[in-house]
Simulated scan of single mutants.
Amino acid sequence: MRRSRPWLYWILKVVVAPFLTSVFRPWTRGFENVPESGPVIFASNHLSFVDSVFLPVVLDRHVTFLAKSDYFTKPGPFGWLQKELFFGLGQVPIDRSGGKASEASLNSGLGVLAEGRQLGIYPEGTRSPDGRLYRGRTGVARIVLESGARVIPVAMVDTQKIQPLGTRIPKVRRVGVVFGEPLDFSRFSGLEGDRFVLRSITDEIMYEISRLSGQEYVDVYASSVRARPGAQSVGATP
């Protein structure tokens, strides 16, 4: 796993974060639930590309995200720049194709937590196509059980309004980040091979995210909805 470049994170916190804070005025609730040290899993809803910007902005410690591998494989100069930026900030590509590729991606996340760091993950696997909350994938539950790290459910609020579908220039909208109370799954210790346990843990995490965000929950995968002909991405309307 490629390591982050400290100077990129320094630029984010010292230069970019104050600018974003002054322009978008992100608000937080439940920040007292965020541990000051040790490994932490932030399990968040996913409304917009900028979710991975504003969550790090409001946190004191660096957070590494499991980001879909598509962000690292786009062609051309812009694709190369995006890949280097993601790697430089310590983001980890996750392959959702299954089998050994997905296993390697999850192991990368476990490596982050084993070093006592913070890991951000979007259990839905992709951005919501319409602002609702979709079924979570059980990879998050495996990471929870195998790492033993604390789990903080997170709700990103109104981030989809910054750049609605079809717009090139971001809109200035106030956004929020809500941190829930830590979730305890120690009762399932040693059962990471039980698919019913993994589904139960994932559903509990999604319930907490829904409760925090106020989103309607849909018990299908977001990727299935996004793949339908004519499907529109979240933020299609102001």
Results as ranks from 00 to 15, higher is better:
residue 1 M to I: 13
residue 2 R to D: 15
residue 3 R to L: 11
residue 3 R to P: 02
residue 6 P to V: 11
residue 7 W to K: 12
residue 7 W to V: 14
residue 10 W to Q: 09
residue 11 I to P: 07
residue 12 L to K: 06
residue 12 L to E: 12
residue 15 V to E: 12
residue 17 A to M: 08
residue 18 P to N: 12
residue 20 L to D: 08
residue 24 F to P: 13
residue 25 R to A: 14
residue 29 R to S: 13
residue 30 G to I: 01
residue 32 E to P: 12
residue 33 N to F: 11
residue 34 V to Y: 03
residue 35 P to C: 02
residue 36 E to P: 08
residue 37 S to M: 07
residue 40 V to C: 05
residue 41 I to M: 09
residue 42 F to C: 10
residue 42 F to M: 07
residue 45 N to R: 09
residue 47 L to E: 14
residue 50 V to F: 15
residue 51 D to M: 07
residue 56 P to A: 06
residue 56 P to M: 00
residue 58 V to I: 13
residue 58 V to K: 12
residue 58 V to C: 11
residue 59 L to G: 04
residue 61 R to A: 04
residue 62 H to I: 04
residue 69 S to K: 15
residue 72 F to A: 10
residue 73 T to C: 14
residue 73 T to F: 01
residue 75 P to G: 08
residue 76 G to S: 01
residue 76 G to Y: 01
residue 76 G to N: 02
residue 77 P to W: 11
residue 77 P to V: 05
residue 77 P to A: 04
residue 79 G to H: 06
residue 80 W to A: 12
residue 80 W to S: 09
residue 86 F to Y: 13
residue 89 L to C: 03
residue 91 Q to M: 11
residue 92 V to H: 11
residue 93 P to C: 07
residue 95 D to W: 11
residue 98 G to M: 15
residue 100 K to G: 09
residue 102 S to Y: 07
residue 104 A to L: 12
residue 105 S to M: 05
residue 106 L to C: 03
residue 106 L to Y: 01
residue 106 L to T: 08
residue 108 S to W: 02
residue 109 G to V: 02
residue 111 G to H: 03
residue 113 L to A: 06
residue 114 A to I: 06
residue 119 L to G: 05
residue 119 L to S: 04
residue 123 P to N: 11
residue 124 E to S: 08
residue 125 G to T: 08
residue 126 T to E: 07
residue 127 R to K: 10
residue 129 P to Q: 03
residue 130 D to W: 00
residue 134 Y to W: 02
residue 135 R to C: 08
residue 135 R to W: 00
residue 137 R to F: 11
residue 138 T to D: 03
residue 140 V to D: 06
residue 140 V to G: 03
residue 140 V to A: 13
residue 142 R to H: 06
residue 142 R to F: 02
residue 149 A to T: 06
residue 150 R to F: 01
residue 151 V to T: 09
residue 152 I to P: 06
residue 152 I to C: 01
residue 156 M to C: 15
residue 158 D to L: 01
residue 163 Q to E: 04
residue 163 Q to L: 13
residue 164 P to K: 03
residue 164 P to S: 02
residue 165 L to A: 08
residue 165 L to Y: 01
residue 165 L to N: 00
residue 166 G to P: 03
residue 166 G to R: 00
residue 169 I to P: 02
residue 170 P to Q: 12
residue 170 P to G: 10
residue 173 R to S: 04
residue 175 V to Q: 10
residue 181 E to Q: 14
residue 181 E to D: 13
residue 183 L to Q: 10
residue 189 S to C: 00
residue 189 S to H: 04
residue 189 S to K: 07
residue 191 L to P: 00
residue 194 D to K: 00
residue 202 T to E: 08
residue 202 T to Y: 12
residue 207 Y to H: 15
residue 208 E to W: 07
residue 210 S to W: 02
residue 211 R to V: 14
residue 211 R to N: 14
residue 212 L to D: 13
residue 213 S to R: 11
residue 214 G to S: 11
residue 217 Y to C: 05
residue 218 V to L: 11
residue 221 Y to V: 09
residue 225 V to T: 02
residue 227 A to G: 14
residue 236 A to C: 04
residue 236 A to S: 03
